[in-house]
Amino acid sequence: MKSGWVLLAVVILLAALAGLAVGQVDIGPAMLWHGALTGEGPGALTLRLIRAPRVVTGLGAGAALGMAGAICQMLFRNPLAAPDVMGFTAGAGLAVVAAIALGLGLPLPPVAAAGGLATAGLVAALSWSPRHDTPPLTLILVGLGIGFTAGALGSFAMTRLPQAEAAEAQRWLTGSLAARDWGQAAQVWGISAVLGLVAAVQMRALAVLELGEAMAAGLGLRAGRARWALVATAVLLAATGVAVAGPLPFVALMAGPLGARVTGARSPLAQMLAAGATGAAIVVLADLAARAALPGIQLPAGVTTGLLGAPYLLWLLARGMARGAL
C-alpha cells in the first residue's frame, strides 16, 4: 500500500510543523515564518534553540523505539514482546538514574545501553530452563518482573537524591522531551542511523528465522547467534531512544503493529521501517498533545504515551482473549 506510506509521511510532516508552531511562548505564525526565513527575531531564536531540537530529538527517539519494538515483536512472534513490556527500557532508565544518583558524570547513551543490555541478559538468563524451550510468554512475564524490580530500585535510588534532583529524575523517568539541545538530537539520529543499518542487514536472517528453526539451520543460518544479534540490536536501539527521551511508555509496543497496519508492510525490513516512522509520529504527536492539551502547562510526553498505550495494551489483551490466544 503506497498510500499508507504517504499518509505516514504526511502525518509526520504535519506533526513536526505543529510541534514547531506550538509552545510555551506564544509566537504568531507570521513571526515564526519570518524567523525561519531570515534567521532573525524572537521567532528564529525560539525555533533554533527550543522547538526544533525538541522535535528532531523526538522524531529520532520515536524512530529508535519503534524499530526496537518491531524487531522484538517479529523475532518473538508476539505483539506483546516489546522492549518496554519486557523491562528493557526500565532497566536502561534505572541505569541512568543510578548514574545520576552516584554522580558518575558518565555520558548517558552508553549507560542506558549497558542497563538495557544487562536487563535483556538477565531476562534471558532468568527465563531459561534446561528442560524445555523458553516460550515467549515466559520471557514477557519474567521481563515484567524485572521491570517491577527496576522500578522499585529506581524509587530506592530516588530516596537518596536531594529533592531538586529527585524531581528532575522523576520527570526524566516519566519520559520527557523538555529542554533538548542539538547535541542530543545529533546523538539520537547518529546512533539510530548506524544501528538501523545494522538492523537492516540482519533483516534477512530474521526473515529466515521466521520460517522456523529447522528450516533456518537447513539454509545455513546459525539460529542462536542470529537471534542474539537481533535482540542486542533491538536493545541498543531502545536504549538510544531512552538516553535522550527517557523510558517513554508503550511507544515500542504500539509502533510495530500500527505501522504494519497503516502501510500494509509485509517484509521484515519494510515492517521495521514502518514501525520507525510510526514511532516518530507517535512521539512527536504525544509531545505535542502533552504541551498543547492544557494552556500554560507543559506535561511530559510520557504522560500522553502512557494514556494512549495502556488502553491499546488492554485492547490487545481483550482481542487475544477473544481469539483464545492468551
Partner: peptide, 19 residues
C-alpha cells in the same frame, strides 16, 4: 499473562493520570 498484563496496563494508565 493476561491478568498480569491487564493489571500492568491499568497501573500504567492510573499512574499517567496521577502524574
Amino acid at each position: 499473562v493476561r491478568l498480569t498484563l491487564a493489571g500492568a496496563a491499568v497501573n500504567a494508565l492510573l499512574l499517567s493520570l496521577v502524574s
